[in-house]
Amino acid sequence: MNGVPLSWYLILSAILFALGAAGFMIRKNMITVFMCIELMLNAVNLSFVAFSRHFKTIDGQIFTFFVMVVAAAEAAVGLAIILTVFRNRSTLQVDDIDSLRL
């Protein structure tokens, strides 16, 4: 076999996406939860690049580029928010932050 079938890349992307989603729901530390979201976005990027290569056009790679930029912007704002939460609360555990519960 000379090349790698497209479906292998898609399956890998699905595995990474599922792991990211699972991690989002399991983990309790805010920063780790955010990193699981980044893992999900990386999985989507892989999917886009694989499709782009399949169609031999550049559109998928362009979308990857934009997903990267958006992830960077979200990371900047998200970490700033985590910083403010920490400043007022001194904890990073999602469970301990419960001033909004009924």
Binding site: G3, V4, S7, Y9, A14, A50, H54
Partner: peptide, 21 residues
């Protein structure tokens, strides 16, 4: 999900070097 993708994905393998973006 993998089975579904395997069945539904288009044929053909992606060899290195045939397309560079």
């Amino acid at each position: 999900l993998s089975y579904v993708i395997q069945r539904a994905a288009p044929e053909g393998s992606l060899a290195f070097g045939e397309y560079t973006g």
